[in-house]
Design a protein around this nucleic acid. Structure first.
Lengths: 335, 335
DNA sequence: TTATCATTTTGCAAACTTTCAAAATCGCGC
DNA sequence: GCGCGATTTTGAAAGTTTGCAAAATGATAA
């Protein structure tokens, strides 16, 4: 096999009869190049089909237009709408900004090769807090997504999940329900905890007591939703409305109720969380609390780029608001 | 701001009183280093907290331990189990092999910056065939995943979807069904086309005619499944068994039947495709054709690494076999 | 001990591009 | 022709790996 020698910037310079530096300036669209030389360089580039070596560019410039996305690897996360939207949003944003996206699944312990990227987005830092701190110490631009981080000076962009829980609870209370239960998300995650917190807050505000068993702990999986809902139905005084911490969970609960011949929303109202596009098909279009996951991901990439380029010097701290989307799965309770 | 000069391999060499080359050999675990020098170098590395510059390593070695994953960006793909398993499988495999995974969503036209990776995995090449050819021409190691490519000398690893369709059809026919319909996947994709092909082949073998309207074209989305199934139910002579091209579609069809009070499998049998873990919850555990997506992704990464390192010189051409998983959603037809 | 040969270990230099500082060139007025 | 500011061009340094040559070491025999 003939190993054809790669044509380098030097070959171009030689052909155009200018220095290497001049070729580089033409490549990078610097102004201070005489028109004649510029034309000669462009001719040479075209003639030799020259393509700069990316590694050399990165080495010489000390920058690299790549960002990392670190996601926890615990079982099931990738089956959630949340994870998919994050990947999709970050992926599209990177494509638009011509950034390489380096995707990492972490177990929380392996060392992240942060030197191959200009900055890192950490999703859901439960498991990998140590890595965030390590990256910060190493001076790598960091941004945490989907968490609000109070105890660490790091940029973050999250969603007001307390407000989300409040919106759900408030809507159900406003419809006249007094027996409102919830099946929570994973209470190890900030989103799970905070949605529950907001929900409880509203019930308290309305002087409703949360009956025994009205909070079923789930983990965002369909299975946990089914298990939780079954327990709710078995209560001596079952709820007339259920707040599910994700749309997938809500859909599973609707399916369970259909199987049992319980009508939604006539017999029981259901509200979900996410605004997963699939909720508008199926037997009943789901009322839900919409959270802007895709937008959050896009903004995260843009903010991180600002941090990397030094345009943004202070930590970015941004909280996006969820909003109610009313469809057909909630109504006032039967008298 | 004090710009601390990065400590380089030269600093280490100076401190250890050896040449740069020797330090490099210690770093890369070459044998030919005298023990005394090795110890001195290791001491210096530790004392100076030296970390090699990744860009410089990549430039000097001409290699880079990164691979690209290119996925089409058409709407909805990321909501499929298939896409998630692919990302998850490739991600885990890369983590295990200490490879950087550079993730790309393509519109089929943008130029892939293939120079920043050692090789590329192309998923589902409907939309980006031009890019595959470009990468091959550029001499980049390529591997197509989830497609069987006959008309291009490129490595691929796919799944025998014709066989998958046959397995589904054969199982239903074996149960005694004679009115078997299907709701297909996206017929623009190879998997969609081939599952249908296998399905038709089996019916022909059993001398069954495919009644008018018994093939409903879907696109792997839940919505298309619902629409297709509704049309099947509206037929003058509706089927007693339905082959859905994905588990998600199958689940949606089951949900629809439940809503209509049609019992699965007593009234209608349903078989899916994928072996999505969520199919074992819900009203009826789904019988399905299992395809090893995660395993396929892992093998793709390993094969690509072989191609990059030159250990594998011929194109890799591998086809994995799907298999039947019997659960509770199929039975013999009512007499 | 010395010469010879084989083996191990070391060092040099090239590979590629950007950027900063320094050098060269240009235009213009005196 | 010369000085001077502005513009344009150039040279050199930065980072690490690797093939090749050189040096050092070890082993053996005379």
């Amino acid at each position: 096999m003939i190993k054809k020698k790669r044509i380098s910037i030097e070959d171009v310079a030689r052909r155009a009869k200018v220095s290497i530096a001049t070729v580089s300036r033409v490549l990078n669209n610097f102004q201070s190049v005489n028109n004649k030389n510029r034309a000669a360089v462009e001719e040479a580039i075209a003639a030799l089909k020259y393509k700069p070596d990316v590694s050399a560019q990165r080495l010489a410039s000390g920058t690299n237009n790549a960002i990392g996305l670190v996601m926890p690897g615990y079982p099931g996360i990738f089956y959630s709408f949340y994870a998919v939207e994050l990947i999709r949003g970050v992926g599209h944003a990177c494509e638009k900004l011509h950034l390489d996206l380096v995707f990492h699944i972490t177990n929380g312990f392996n060392d992240l090769n942060s030197t191959s990227v200009g900055g890192v987005i950490f999703a859901d830092i439960i498991e990998n807090r140590r890595q965030v701190e390590a990256a910060l110490n190493a001076g790598v631009a960091c941004l945490v997504i989907n968490n609000i981080v109070e105890d660490l000076d790091v940029s973050y962009i999250g969603i007001d999940n307390v407000l989300g829980g409040e919106i759900a609870g408030e809507y159900l209370a406003g419809l006249g329900h007094s027996r409102i239960a919830t099946v929570t998300g994973n209470l190890q995650t900030q989103s799970g905890k905070q949605r529950l917190e907001g929900f409880k807050k509203v019930l308290k505000k309305h002087n409703m007591t949360l009956a025994d068993g009205y909070v079923q702990e789930g983990d965002y999986s369909r299975r946990s939703a089914r298990v939780g809902a079954e327990k709710l139905l078995a209560l001596p005084n079952p709820p007339t409305a259920i707040f599910a911490a994700s749309d997938e969970m809500a859909l599973e609960i609707v399916a369970l109720l259909m199987e049992r011949g319980i009508k939604v929303p006539q017999d029981i109202s259901i509200i979900g969380f996410d605004d997963n596009p699939s909720v508008i098909y199926g037997p009943v279009a789901l009322t839900t609390v919409k959270q802007p996951l895709f937008q959050m991901a896009e903004e995260a990439v843009k903010s991180l780029q600002g941090l990397i380029q030094g345009k943004q010097t202070k930590s970015v701290k941004k909280v996006l608001k969820p909003e109610l989307v009313v469809r057909d799965s909630c109504s006032s309770p039967k008298k």
